[in-house]
Design a protein around this nucleic acid. Sequence first.
DNA 1: CAGTGGTCTAGACCACACA
DNA 2: GTGTGGTCTAGACCACTGC
Lengths: 234, 234
Amino acid sequence: MLKYQQVANQIELYIEQHQLQQGTKLPVLESLMDEFSASKSTIIKALDLLEKKGLIFQVRGSGIFVRRKSRMGYINLLSNQGFKKDLEEFDITSEMLQLDVVKPTQEVADNLQIDYDQGVYYVKRIRYINGQTLCVEESYYDKSVVTYLNKQIVTESIFHYVTEGLGLNIGFSEMYIKTGKLTEEEANYLHLKQGDPKLVMESIFFLSNGKPFDFSKVTYNYEQSQFFLLGSGI
Amino acid sequence: MLKYQQVANQIELYIEQHQLQQGTKLPVLESLMDEFSASKSTIIKALDLLEKKGLIFQVRGSGIFVRRKSRMGYINLLSNQGFKKDLEEFDITSEMLQLDVVKPTQEVADNLQIDYDQGVYYVKRIRYINGQTLCVEESYYDKSVVTYLNKQIVTESIFHYVTEGLGLNIGFSEMYIKTGKLTEEEANYLHLKQGDPKLVMESIFFLSNGKPFDFSKVTYNYEQSQFFLLGSGI
DNA sequence: CAGTGGTCTAGACCACACA
DNA sequence: GTGTGGTCTAGACCACTGC
């Protein structure tokens, strides 16, 4: 693990364990440099990580301060990207409804940047949060990248399999969010009524070499889902 | 302006003007260092900015590549620039419905971290996109920070006034997103029906010293609004 | 004006991609 | 192995905050 990540983790741990309240000032840079035997740049890089995570904020000429905790019960749009680590915090289970190799529709082919005659894995799942229906998820995986899927992989974590099993690196993602009215089929899955509100999130995940490999459409239960997002800088 | 921002701007300009396509490889670091007479760290910091913005992606051991453009017509949740930049091809106007100094409710006082007897500015606005109602916005400003507001400021840009007119620095923000059903009043404003879907976004904006000064609740017309978000790293 | 965070540099060394 | 991006360092200097 990189040094600045280690430093960040240790500072984070310190804040948690000492239950530092919002506004508490952390030691000045020079102290942190001494404590962690690191250069200024390394400390700053660690602090930038924590700032991005929303734990602290830095004020030039003044100090480094603990930021208040954001509201509980919201899903973090930027850390909960389907990655294993973030899903573990909630009690999320999933049930597979379908797993097939299909020809992509134009929409899917466009988003995955593949030809219409290339096969894709189609996966349909329902996810539950603490036993309640959270969302219906339809995912398409480029079969030339994700060469094999089975029920076990799909029920556990596809992303874990992609990174660990296939040794691929996930680089970045795009997410699109809209609201609309539930169709009859969606309403049945979510135990809601047709015409009720839904939140639809389309995501595209890219390998670190820029190749898109996963296009997903997720329909959320509007009663079970709320999201949050931290902004920094302007 | 800082050097790494300048470098980032120039590279961005270069990509735009040469209409570089997705996957195009940019010059290697050393070339960029020469071209901009900057050190490696400075170039990397510039590239990090562009990566965060979603313009490029960097692959260790391989190169720096242009990322594809994301879909048009979506509002960037992280840009913090209002809608102007994302929807600049559309015609956005806003109408002020109310501007008053009021006592905060508990919800407002909590979010702005002030006492119940401190005054806050209450601003209610409607925003239109191409003549259609986009959203209804209710904002509360801590009056001890935003000491004065009038109709002109509110109709133009409050954030511009806060930064330029009052000389304050905006530091970071929190955003909370949920969906629900429109109330009768909201439906009237948005020219939709009671019970139709709505997307509600609550935002809290903080000065760079950590003081929250703006708490806003925005109710979007579900037919007119869609959002996007770029993820990077893991 | 003292204290503190941020930028910038030059260079050593490391980690990964690709052929 | 070569090329390329990333980490890390030590130190000079800059910019902002607040007494």
